[in-house]
Write a protein that binds this DNA or RNA. Structure first.
Lengths: 206, 206
DNA sequence: ATCCGAAGCGGACCGCTGGTCCGTATTCTA
DNA sequence: TAGAATACGGACCAGCGGTCCGCTTCGGAT
């Protein structure tokens, strides 16, 4: 219950590790190429400090992602529309997916490192369950989607924002950010059964 | 051009390795828990034989998956409708996705091992590009989907059949095979803009 | 049947990784 | 300022993917 306040140096080291890891993942070729020893050296701490603070490699990456993800989560939980609560599901679902996509695009290195961290599937990572629940709940409020469908639909929509897919499109194939967003938005609209969009797509050739 | 015929023992060993690997991946907890040494021992061969025959771990898993995948590929390339060519895209796309889903469901262990093999993203695996091209080509023939959309749509649809998602639903959450198929089919129908399905889903609550 | 070159074999071996241990240095409390 | 609790760090370990090289086995030619 009584939380011991962490020592100063511990906090400072933790921050240094975060910064060093973020930097290394951002500049190195593959996430696998960044070793724990590298991070420790870059942060100017001993290797054991990493493991004491974060448990294991997955824990470190997870904590890092969680930290960078917090603004997004907050914007979703207590923010203005269309991301925040109180928005019509038909508007909020696309907004949510767009936010996730943008995060994964802007933090590709981290998201990629997380999803590829060891053998544990990304579906057991804490935040995935959270996104899924939020999304499923929203989908259930949309008429025309049966309840049992919304669970799978939420998974499928989230799968369209998988980090390695984003990396494949953005990194290897140079798809611009805005275009990716537009395509995900169009896809989402299709799934949600947006008739206007159908008509527009059938009409314009652009 | 002139292919040297492989020696008998080489062929036999290769087959033994396939069988042993398949078995190990099927019965072990996580794909990462199966080491090359394990496979070699189970097949009754030396470790070097594995690497000589398949290059590296990824090569072995890739070859294994490719072998198991061949019937499916053949059914798609030269088979009867609705999977084979000459089927209306609106019918063939769901059939294709269903076939992929079934394969990944029935060979979860292998598909999981492949997608999680090392750091190389599954998007560089040979067959992914093949599926994607087929799917995109089909989507382009469906009116109401602009050409630029079909590329991303193909990716997104394939993402709904990712091995770890299938494993999450089928393995951890015990979703039955037929139900998964039905859900993917419903999702696909939505993406393809099936109006009948929309109406049905809006009407019935089941 | 025999012989011989070559293709194949296997297990000892290597480099490197994630992860641990324990003597030492630092920080908080009184 | 003294003492105990906490954190540090680099040497250390086990296990992995992958390689090497002396030996075995195959198969075509005689």
């Amino acid at each position: 219950m009584t939380e011991r306040k962490p020592r100063k140096d511990a906090a400072r080291n933790k921050a240094a590790v975060f910064e060093a890891a973020d930097d290394l993942f951002a500049h190195c070729e593959s996430p696998e190429a960044v070793t724990m020893a590298d991070i420790a050296a870059a942060a100017g701490v001993g290797k054991a400090t990493l493991f004491r603070a974060f448990g294991d490699r997955g824990g470190l990456i997870g904590a890092l992602v969680e930290a960078r993800l917090e603004p997004v989560r907050e914007a979703v939980e207590t923010g203005p529309p269309p991301l925040g609560p109180g928005t019509a599901p038909l508007l909020r679902v696309p907004a949510l997916l767009d936010a996730i996509l943008c995060f994964k695009y802007d933090n590709r290195h981290l998201a990629l490192a997380l999803e590829g961290s060891g053998g544990s599937s990304p579906y057991r990572a804490g935040h995935y369950g959270s996104w899924h629940t939020t999304l499923r709940t929203l989908l259930e409020q949309i008429p025309g989607l049966s309840g049992s469908e919304s669970d799978f639909t939420a998974h499928a929509l989230l799968a369209a924002t998988r980090a390695d897919l984003v990396e494949h499109l953005a990194g290897a194939r140079d798809t611009p950010r805005e275009r990716l967003r537009a395509e995900l938005a169009a896809f989402t609209a299709r799934v949600l059964g947006d008739r206007d969009r159908d008509r527009e797509a059938a009409g314009g050739t652009s």
